[in-house]
Design a protein around this nucleic acid. Structure first.
Lengths: 172, 172
DNA sequence: CTGAATGTTTAGTAAGTACTAAACAAAGTA
DNA sequence: TACTTTGTTTAGTACTTACTAAACATTCAG
């Protein structure tokens, strides 16, 4: 059984890669999350075991996702970072981040398929075209719903335990 | 502008890897989703461009996640597969699948950290221990809430558009 | 302007992942 | 039993990714 902090950091690294993020992000977040104050890049190097380069890159990603926040101290040229402790706020930020870009582009291809089918493109017998059109539309509707859900969540200005518990009641 | 079906298959491959799944899974699902009837492994080889081995492996994963379903025809030794067209049912299955295993194990490390801190393990000054304990507990509460959410969803026997739209109303 | 402190970018590398090709296993058929 | 059909496993490979080490850029101090 190792050092408590180290174990915690390794644990968050694991969670990080479970969510499909580089495990370095988990480690950096863990260090910041346990720190009593914002840390500089050098302090992160010391406490996370990663190198400057890796930290520089991962810190950028974490900031973009809203999981950590840069802090500037007057008269100090260093960058400091602190962890976001309001996870619901972080979730909203992440949803906003993921929504744009890759996701939209991928989902768009389904929309295109549907559009082309409805425009009569391609060489299909009427029954097959009907099937394909129906399936494409069902998939598009599903994605549109997911999109609406993500968008609704990220537009919330207070997503907290109360909101989640309300939702939980409905689901039960 | 290519063949409609091929474009659709490529599109789903992209979505697949966006969700962190092998893109072969997306391709196989796409082929099955557009097929009027269940397909055999050989037919999948022909229509997806993958080899038997890859299909064998990915089909297992897709089945485990509930995204496709094996079909057995009497007097036919072949295995056939058809796509799940009820995506909400698939979501429930996926949540169930992901919940057990990797996720629990990772989250468990946070629980362990908290337990050890509360048991007085480690060499920390009182104020630091207080901070660490508070942070660990907040994180654990957050994960527990997520867990409850996932669990509630996967226990639903009818998660459909109506349910989702009800939730959407609350969020707004 | 020179030098030091800080952060970023780049080239190379190590590890993981998902595929192919082919050997193998299993199970029915002659 | 030997042969055929079907699916799985394995060995090897190509690709991707996230890291390190080091060069580079920028900004401030003297």
């Amino acid at each position: 059984m190792g050092d408590i902090k180290s174990d915690f950091i390794e644990g968050l690294s694991g969670i990080s890669q479970f969510w499909g993020l580089p495990k370095g992000m988990g480690a950096i977040f863990a260090v910041l999350y346990l720190a009593p104050a914002a840390l500089s890049l050098d302090e992160l190097v010391a406490q996370s075991g990663l190198t400057k380069g890796a930290i520089s890159a991962n810190v950028r990603g974490l900031t973009r996702m809203g999981l950590i926040r840069p802090v500037n101290r007057l008269g100090d040229r260093k960058d400091y970072y602190q962890a976001e402790t309001d996870f619901y706020r972080a979730i909203r930020a992440i949803l906003q981040e993921r929504q744009s870009g890759e996701f939209d582009r991928a989902v768009d291809s389904v929309t295109q398929t549907l559009r082309r089918l409805e425009a009569g493109e391609g060489d299909f017998a009427p029954p097959e075209r009907a099937l394909l059109t129906e399936r494409a539309r069902a998939l598009k509707d599903f994605f549109d719903t997911l999109d609406a859900l993500a968008s609704a969540i990220s537009r919330l200005d207070s997503l907290g335990l109360n909101t989640v518990q309300t939702v939980l009641k409905i689901l039960k």
